[in-house]
Write a protein that binds this DNA or RNA. Sequence first.
DNA 1: CTGAAAGCGCTTACAG
DNA 2: CTGAAAGCGCTTACAG
Lengths: 335, 335
Amino acid sequence: MATMQDVADRAGVTKQTVSNVMGNRGRVGRETAARVRAAVKELGYTPNLVARSLATGTTKTLGMLVPTLSGGFYSVLVEEVEDVLNRHGYHLLLCTTHLDGERARRHLAGLSSRNVDALLIAGDQDLPTQLPVLAEAPFPVALCAWETEAPDGYPVVTIDYERAGCLAGRHLRELGHERVAVIASPAHGARIEGFRRALAADGIVLADDDVHFAPEPTSTGGFLAAQAAFTADPEVTALFATHDILALGAIDAAKESGRAIPGDVSIVGHDDNDEASLARPALTTVAIPKREMARLAAEQLLRILAGAEEGTNSLHLLRPSLTVRASSGPVRAAR
Amino acid sequence: MATMQDVADRAGVTKQTVSNVMGNRGRVGRETAARVRAAVKELGYTPNLVARSLATGTTKTLGMLVPTLSGGFYSVLVEEVEDVLNRHGYHLLLCTTHLDGERARRHLAGLSSRNVDALLIAGDQDLPTQLPVLAEAPFPVALCAWETEAPDGYPVVTIDYERAGCLAGRHLRELGHERVAVIASPAHGARIEGFRRALAADGIVLADDDVHFAPEPTSTGGFLAAQAAFTADPEVTALFATHDILALGAIDAAKESGRAIPGDVSIVGHDDNDEASLARPALTTVAIPKREMARLAAEQLLRILAGAEEGTNSLHLLRPSLTVRASSGPVRAAR
DNA sequence: CTGAAAGCGCTTACAG
DNA sequence: CTGAAAGCGCTTACAG
């Protein structure tokens, strides 16, 4: 590989001048610059970014930590972030944790040793115990898709999850549902709370017993939780699943128990991942602006790197919206 | 951040000795090593990998190029590769192309400037024109999920796609189907060819007109292509979709036209992505060992880097298998 | 406008 | 077993 010195030799200048030409920096004579550019082209010179990084302390690389790429949620966030970075000449160092705290810690150390310029963490399930470590990170860190209370000191771009739950609850109330239950993942406290609040506003009490946790975040998990819900209250007329994939399992459970959807039971999901529109009946779900969230978080980090923003400790809450499809409908007349 | 020199000063040795201790390299006295390790711990020293990279020419980073992360295919490959890398102390620089050749070219240049140790390219739809550029890459390159003829000079780990098509064809033949059609993406020539061959073995001719290309690789695309198939031959009893997501659209089209699945028409997909088992009826599909493919490709690259293997120009073909679910069944009696 | 020097933080022979 | 020197390929002040 040609080096900057090679280019300098060929152009009859010093490598410092080559550096200036490459960076459009320092004033370089037109004629000299042209000679340098010619040499660059002839030699097929391309700067060694590792060397530049060592000299500048900047790598034009952003790290991103996600729990997983399976399912239609985090993979979309990653895709969007990579798009933003690509537009700005940055690259993406992607790390998955599989909810393994030790693995997250290792990744943090690795990213730090590799001098990433910034880190974006998606999802709040990863770092229960890693926050202290994070605080010492020598680069800016932003958080997104954060449902629990956001820790202090970081820019956070996330969804108003409580409002999301609210939208689901309000929707079901407007359809006249009063016997409702929730199929949930444990981490989805805010959604559940919002849902509960929306019902409470109409005097409906969602008891703790009406929340059925799925044993795993899969359609099977949703299936089992829905069965539990049907057992607990055979007259239930609506189910809110805090996760689309759980809703898919709930649809199966409803069908298997002979319930028509939405005739006998309405089902509402959350996220509006691809699965939601592919379900049959197509799933009514709370849509959250995934891509926008990812984009905003990445752009904020980039602005901080550009020195255009301080950005510590901001909280940007994005609003969810309801996507009504075929799985929800008016409550059936009492039998 | 503490530097190696800081550690050396504190331990009363030279930084070269610290380097040796960190790398378990060179013979260092027990007592000296202990002092160094103590200093490392006290200072919270962590080596600067960028500096190390400049000195060694190795970055412990692997680049991966994929068309997209949407859908259940490439995201799984990426996840698996990251797992492998994580086990070996490597990191993943992830690039998506969105089938944009210019973007692929830029990424190639960026990865090369960043001195990734190796590159894994998934999918053959990206680099129609970039292969010459690739040939000059200063690092080993491996290919996976390659359906068209694999270019010479690279290790390739892929699926026997023709056999995959064969399995679908044979399955439908065994169920007695003779009027069949294909719903396809243009890039899936091998699958189609295999399917055709399997039918031909039983004397059934799949004409070019029996292959209906989807206008886009989505369930809507599959829906439209399936409609075209039903129009072209209302008596068709089986559909092979070269892509699960197309099959989902085909299921909708069948239902909408009043056809029962599999009573009136059987539908077989390809890939066995998550969507397949979530479909209703659950989709019979050709399962391909995605994770194994990704793992093998990544491991081969790692072996090449370790000098344990030459590895240029090998072709590793993985065998698909058929996953029978509810969307396929015996041909109905002729009306 | 251009060049000489020092430095980024490591590793790699090579002496002792 | 340990140290002094040179070098990886850039950039950053600083002179001229």
